[in-house]
Amino acid sequence: MVSAVRTVLGDVLPGQLGVCDAHDHLFFGSPRLPGQELCDAASARAELAAFREQGGASVVQWTPYGLGRRAADLPLLSRDTGVHVVAATGLHQAEHYAPELLTGLRGRLAEVFVAELTRGIGTTRVRAGLIKVAGGFHALDAHARWTVTAAAEAHHATGAPVAVHLELGTGALDVLDLLCGELGVPPHRVILGHLNRSPDPVVQRQAAEAGAYLAFDGPSRAHHATDWRMPDAVRALAEAGFGHRLLLGGDTTTAGARSVNGGPGMPYLLRRVRPRLEVALGRELVERVLVENPGRAFAVEWL
């Protein structure tokens, strides 16, 4: 088995990622967030540089197909800042897209994912390193089942990991039942995002027991109560033996949330969240979550 993380500048060994923001966005645009698009390359460069100044070494961009990934810009940003960047293929919830775009993808979604993982995104040679899809609110609607099924097919063809947006942190076990139970994706190839938005310790424990990675992403969002509950949740999972399954990310999705625009942005993860977790959990565990775990979680595995 060969294992490497597929960055926008090429494959690197899992141990070369360094301190990793496991879920964030350099570019992102959705009709759900008018006027808050992440579409400016200069701001993206400044944000990456600010993250680098805090000790950051890699960022996994979860922006999927059709939401303004700006794949052609990612290699230059990575070179300029010295930060590894991993790009995504995949598809978000239906409400983020025009109906005609989704209609055009019918019957070929998995093919699109595989092409972006193996040949390049759009007309670029930038290959995606993960597949990002989304569940629904407490359940899986028809769109979610379609995209998750395509993601599983693409995983089996390429060995790429599958990252899942959980709507308000819900539906994790339904996602695992479909993705791993019915569709045969190994649980350790699945990253569940936003479980901290619905901080149910029983569900978190069950997801970890199933073998999936749990991404505690989106810190600083007070309405999700993420920051003050995160240390207790991470400690409970680590004490139960699942410290090797935990990831941390920032999930910056709007221009106003960027540090260069006065928001917390990518640096907040290392500037505020990391020291708080080190006090609560110890440096060794936090180092593992930020450095060791992402290399395994985001590695592309093939024979």
Rank of each mutant, 00 (worst) to 15 (best):
L248A: 01
H155G: 14
V2Y: 10
A212R: 00
E209V: 15
D232C: 10
S30W: 03
Q36G: 03
A207Y: 04
A98P: 08
D232F: 15
V12G: 08
L140Q: 06
H92Q: 09
G55D: 08
Q93F: 03
V86S: 03
R221S: 02
T89Q: 00
A139M: 13
S43M: 15
G262N: 13
P275E: 04
V85G: 01
A233F: 14
D24P: 00
V12F: 04
L269D: 02
I191L: 12
G10C: 05
R127K: 15
L173S: 12
V12D: 06
R45S: 07
E47Y: 14
V112C: 14
G184S: 11
N196D: 08
T123E: 13
N196E: 04
S198D: 09
G68R: 04
G107M: 10
P275S: 08
H143A: 12
E153D: 12
T253Q: 11
V12L: 01
L248W: 03
F242Y: 15
G129S: 06
P275N: 09
G68C: 13
E284L: 08
D11C: 06
L270C: 11
A41Y: 02
H25N: 12
A215V: 01
A215M: 04
R119I: 07
R235S: 13
V19W: 00
Q36R: 13
G159C: 05
A50S: 15
G250R: 06
A238H: 14
G129P: 07
P264H: 10
T254F: 10
L237V: 11
T147Q: 04
L102W: 03
Y97V: 01
R272E: 12
A42K: 09
T7S: 10
G218S: 05
L285P: 09
D80W: 05
D80K: 03
E301N: 06
R70Y: 11
P187A: 03
V273T: 14
L48Q: 04
P201K: 03
R45M: 10
G193R: 03
R6T: 13
L91M: 15
N196S: 08
R45H: 15
P75H: 08
L195M: 09
H84I: 02
V234P: 02
G136M: 02
F216C: 05
A163C: 13
F137E: 03
V60S: 04
G82R: 07
L192G: 09
